[in-house]
């Protein structure tokens, strides 16, 4: 398994984007993505053209849609579900998420703490938090300056709150890519762990929650427990685990690159362990947890210490398949 650079939240002229499907694909190739998901608002009209353009350019384009409801947005990846966005209500949103997952799609809560009405009506997630807990993933970071500001902080807090409840919900970033940006001021990548960059494998990685989000840092991260190595998103046997982390620079990151790393934080439901870390040097940290374990990487960027990367969680105990991976749908512990 390796990690592939993905953009999971994009738009074209089929909704309110300014790039045609072909232009989006061209730009994604220029930006070094291995795979993108086309998630136009409430339509899949651009998907065929984007997939065709992707085949010509060697880019995996995964069909998707952004359910753009009045009360919140969700990126739905896979293109197999038959849910009509107009049928989604505050009362049935949980059932609609489940229905999409049962068809094979992966559902992520999109930019839940972004300002909604009257600036971007529907962008703020107004659904009862209990009703969105079944989502596979959560946009912990979104759009420009993803690791800065109030919305980023509140999203991160809510995601940790969901993990604390014992939910298995992955961390993803959504660029929410609407227009051609030659050099975005600050943006992130979602890296998805998969056997290949094929649609099937990326979708599988997203379903497992084998992801991390980053501004400029590659994070090779795994957990070792009872002599066996587990990737991000895995369910580990209960007990002590050793978290192994190796970070490198993303050399072609186009915005401000991190100058240096300062520390890795191993954040679990039991507390936080901090360890110094530098580029190119693997660290190993022992920890125990009962629900979740997340790795955060901090470093200096623009001369200020910032949170540079967040992994999805390793989970303790509970239901897992033969490979120790998180169930891909209906992800309650």
């Amino acid at each position: 398994m390796r990690f592939f650079r993905c953009e999971l939240h994009t738009h074209t002229t089929s909704s309110d984007g300014s790039m045609s499907p072909e232009e989006l694909v061209d730009r994604a190739v220029e930006c070094g993505y291995d795979a993108i998901v086309l998630t136009d608002h409430n339509t899949v009209a651009g998907v065929k053209r984007a997939i065709s353009a992707g085949k010509n350019r060697g880019l995996t384009v995964i069909p998707g849609i952004e359910w753009t409801t009045f009360w919140g947005h969700f990126t739905v990846t896979g293109g197999t579900s038959d849910v009509l966005w107009r049928d989604i209500t505050p009362q049935n949103v949980d059932a609609m998420i489940k229905r999409a997952q049962e068809k094979g799609d992966v559902v992520a809560v999109a930019h839940p703490k972004r300002m909604g009405f009257p600036l971007c009506s529907g962008c703020h997630c107004d659904y009862d938090p209990c009703k969105i807990k079944g989502a596979n993933n959560y946009e912990v970071w979104s759009h420009y300056y993803p690791n800065e500001g109030v919305a980023a902080r509140q999203q991160r807090e809510q995601w940790y709150s969901l993990l604390s409840e014992g939910l298995r919900i992955g961390a993803v970033y959504g660029y929410d890519w609407h227009r051609r940006d030659d050099v975005p001021p600050s943006y992130a990548y979602t890296y998805v762990g998969a056997e290949s960059a094929s649609e099937k494998d990326i979708l599988s990685g997203l379903g497992r929650g084998t992801t991390y989000i980053t501004v400029g840092v590659l994070a090779d991260c795994a957990a070792v427990c009872e002599g066996r190595e587990y990737p991000i998103g895995s369910v580990l046997p209960k007990g002590e685990a050793e978290i192994s982390v190796l970070c490198e620079r993303i050399e072609d990151y186009r915005s401000d690159k991190p100058d240096e790393l300062t520390r890795a934080e191993i954040r679990t439901d039991k507390g936080v362990t901090s360890a110094p870390i530098r580029f190119g040097e693997r660290i190993k940290v022992k920890t125990t947890f009962e629900k979740y374990c997340v790795v955060e990487i901090y470093g200096k960027r623009k001369r200020e210490e910032q949170l540079l990367a967040i992994t999805s969680a390793f989970y303790a105990g509970g239901i897992c398949d033969d490979h120790g991976t998180r169930r891909s749908a209906g992800n309650r512990a």
Binding site: S15, H41, T43, A45, T68, R86, L119, S121
Partner: peptide, 22 residues
Amino acid sequence: LDNHLSYSIDSPKGAIGTAHRG
């Protein structure tokens, strides 16, 4: 501040998409 409307069309055979833009 601005108003924002989206449009959808249903044919007798089912939904045929949505136009969501400003």
